[in-house]
Amino acid sequence: MTGDLEAIPVRDDLQTIAFYNLENLFDFEDDPNTHDNDFLPRSEKKWTPKRYKNKLRKLGFAISNIGKKETGKHPAIVGLAEVENAKAIEDLIASKHLEAINYGYVHYDSLDERGIDVALLYDSDAFEVEHSESFRVHLTRDDGETDYTRDILLVSGLLDGEQIHVIANHWSSRREGAKETEHKRFAAADKVIEIINDLNIKYSNPKIVVIGDFNDDPASTSIKRMVDSLGLFNPMEVLHTYSRGTTTYNYQWNLFDQILFSTNFFEATPDTLSFDKANIFDDDFLKLLKGRYKGKPFRTYVGPKYKGGYSDHFPVYTIFKK
């Protein structure tokens, strides 16, 4: 596969924006401020330096190839979910398949109880950061205590010289049930609506890209609420089928990982970015190729059992043309 991809000519008129949930990219050192005890060398999962480096190498290989079939190059911007800290991001950037790329990153520590955050990788040769900010999603438990989750990340900057605003998300999971946790994702959707309304006041006709693991599908109420309130376009709606998505549960595909954007990306003005295509990056090397879970994401762990794969999610990507 990689030999074929290396032969693809680089398209200077195309840029890829991607999103990838990395499935618990923790380093192997104990952080007393986070719940990282599952990912230590002496834990049940035996998260050793060797396993950590193997995961970094595999994730780096996957990231370097997102959109390459169409563009001949690595993605300009990659939103990340489930990274423990800045060190894990720096180790990822320094890994075998990414070290030659001039990737920078934006990351803020959140108060998430699992100690995982969202972040943004960007190719410094293609994207220049002008402003970044993180936003807290305020949730409370039934007992009135604060329920901490991942912050939402806003990064504004110049992609090939044109200003865009990228909003990276990792909304609350469905672990306690889809209906029981729906209000948490509504709260996150409302925060995104608030951020975008502020951008619309601050900027004239801003170009906005919303990326993330939303723990909801394109047809879910939380996503529809955001799309309808803001007039966004969601190219992922047509990609979610019975046999295709980004992650699975009980043998059913979900497309929790999505990229949405403002409709001004359809304006084919000269020398500006416009939408070209969107897809799930689900090449065979990211899948289990045999057995009862054939075709599903090749994971790092299933419960405490080490499988040595990439992630329990496939990445998604959009390509913009100038």
Rank of each mutant, 00 (worst) to 15 (best):
L25T: 11
A76D: 08
P41S: 10
Y249E: 11
E84F: 02
H165G: 04
G144K: 13
A94R: 12
Y301K: 07
I66S: 03
D213G: 02
P235E: 07
Y20A: 01
P41H: 10
V10S: 00
K87H: 12
I223C: 02
Y301V: 14
M1Y: 12
Y242N: 12
V166E: 01
L289P: 01
V10E: 06
D198A: 11
A219T: 15
N24E: 12
D109V: 08
D31H: 06
N65K: 13
R292L: 07
W47N: 02
T16R: 03
R51L: 09
W171T: 06
K58R: 14
I211L: 07
N169M: 01
G212H: 04
D27W: 06
K287F: 08
V78C: 01
H131F: 12
K69E: 15
L92N: 10
A94K: 11
F261S: 04
L111Q: 14
G231F: 05
D198W: 04
V210R: 00
A86N: 07
A119M: 03
K207H: 04
F261Q: 06
D282H: 10
R114K: 13
F256I: 13
H107P: 04
N37R: 14
V118T: 05
S156Q: 04
A189W: 07
H183T: 15
S124P: 00
D276I: 02
F265Y: 13
T246C: 00
R11S: 09
T34F: 02
A168C: 05
S311Q: 05
E29K: 10
P41E: 11
S132M: 03
A88S: 15
S229L: 04
L92H: 07
K224H: 14
G79N: 03
F281S: 09
D190N: 14
K68W: 08
N24F: 09
L199Y: 11
Y122Q: 04
Y293L: 11
P32I: 11
E194A: 03
D143I: 13
G115A: 04
G212T: 09
T248R: 06
G144Y: 12
V83Q: 01
F298M: 11
P235G: 05
R292T: 15
K290T: 15
A86W: 03
H97F: 13
K207F: 05
S262M: 03
D282C: 04
Q15S: 10
V129N: 03
P297V: 14
Y108F: 15
F214P: 05
I223E: 08
S243R: 10
E267R: 02
T48H: 04
A88L: 02
R150S: 12
E128T: 14
D160R: 05
T71E: 10
F320L: 15
F19Y: 10
E128D: 08
L239T: 12
L111T: 15
G67E: 12
V238I: 14
L59N: 05
L25M: 07
D257A: 01
Q163P: 00
D257L: 00
Y306R: 09
K55S: 12
Y52P: 06
A119G: 07
Y108M: 03
A178F: 10
D142Q: 13
T269Q: 05
N24W: 06
F314H: 07
F314V: 08
I319P: 01
T263I: 03
G144F: 11
E29V: 10
G245F: 08
F61L: 13
L230W: 05
L286Q: 09
L260C: 10
R150Q: 11
L5D: 09
E133D: 13
